[in-house]
Design a binder for these strands. Sequence first.
DNA 1: GGTGTGTGTTGATCTAGCGCAACGACATCC
DNA 2: GGATGTCGTTGCGCTAGATCAACACACACC
Lengths: 234, 234
Amino acid sequence: MNTVPNPADLQHLDLFTDLPEAALAAIAREARVRKLPKGTVIFTQGRRAGFCHALIKGRVRISQADGTGAQLLVRFIGPGDMFGTMALFTDGRYPAEAVTVLDSVEVSWSEAALRNLMRVYPQIGLNIIGILGARIREVQERLREMSTQRVECRIANALLRLAERAGQPVAGGTAISFPVMRRDLAEMCGATLHTVSRVLTAWQKRKLLTTTRQHLTIRRMATLREIALHQLVE
Amino acid sequence: MNTVPNPADLQHLDLFTDLPEAALAAIAREARVRKLPKGTVIFTQGRRAGFCHALIKGRVRISQADGTGAQLLVRFIGPGDMFGTMALFTDGRYPAEAVTVLDSVEVSWSEAALRNLMRVYPQIGLNIIGILGARIREVQERLREMSTQRVECRIANALLRLAERAGQPVAGGTAISFPVMRRDLAEMCGATLHTVSRVLTAWQKRKLLTTTRQHLTIRRMATLREIALHQLVE
DNA sequence: GGTGTGTGTTGATCTAGCGCAACGACATCC
DNA sequence: GGATGTCGTTGCGCTAGATCAACACACACC
């Protein structure tokens, strides 16, 4: 585990786009790099937050639980994404839990370091605003889906989002590049894993996709898009 | 309609907290003030955004429609709140529609003016980050509610949020200070207005609240909180 | 090899809340 | 004052999807 990242890696982080070389070097100097094996808990819900995180490699599952144990899968973090940063600018506590679902590498900055960097390079602040804005859009869209669409549409939309952000072109389709369980999909779109299982097997029969345990490949993206759009499915 | 606002008014905007007097004066100079009668459409979904808005007086309804005409009530804007600003930092289009539900007064700044002000007073950027962060939290919480809780809880939560942000203490309860329709509540929590109506009349029989046409007063806040929390209602 | 434990499937019921339909109450406008 | 439109209520049947339950794999570890 080396403790200083390669500035070239930082270039691809959404947090630090449009920054000069010099800035990236300064940012790298303040960073802490960690290798995190699959299954590592990076932070837990409600814990005091002191760091801004970004992912270099791997995949992190962000989920939120309510009092009764019900879970919402907020999102999957991929390489280049920042996470756990909102807390620094609100009440200082992580609102969700972060766990790696693949062997991963993260970079992080202390709150103090980040604030310093933001003072020197205001572009970072603008980047954060852009990231948060985009995220609000997405969450609002999901909220609208949840209130207006039926499960099939929501599952289709969840798959499309996964494909967009973690899709790997393979022979005859697009594979999701990390393990996704039925339970994950269920918690992404407010359904039970039973319903998700039923819908997926139905789609598998229609050759829309193929699945092996925890692995998923979309075969007919266009049809999936249609299902996602149309309220009424034939 | 005067075109320059009183700096004292700006002081109470969440956008401009923690700014020096001088800054407020400069901000006031760049502002445009408009009186908007009830029912005015401030912007429509999808339109090109060129302004950052804030409300001085009144109430604005922000809602988002999907292709099929189904609506999501994103939130109600009250005095001091900024709105329609996210668009400037994402794709430049308003993601929702804004309509006044009371006679209102708004201030707005052109994108260019706002960016200039942000450059001179970086605190504004930090404020925006805080506002967006808080908003993500709220939307995520609603998303979690939508996926895990049943309608009664969701309606209770919607009412509690309304009370928190627009509650006026009155004799024997807390009144919502602007007109709210059954349809509004329904679009806030992903239900039909029929269901909302049924639930509200049930609660009225239990003396939890009283309603007259478009007006709503919560009588037993504590009981409502219980309903909002408990998954299972007796 | 057997024995767990975490995952996925599938069937059989049950029910919360939707959809439809009809009506009632209040406000506004002519 | 009547007509028209917006808003709210209520009854009835229906269905999407939850819940309950049982089973079938796959991969671990002993």
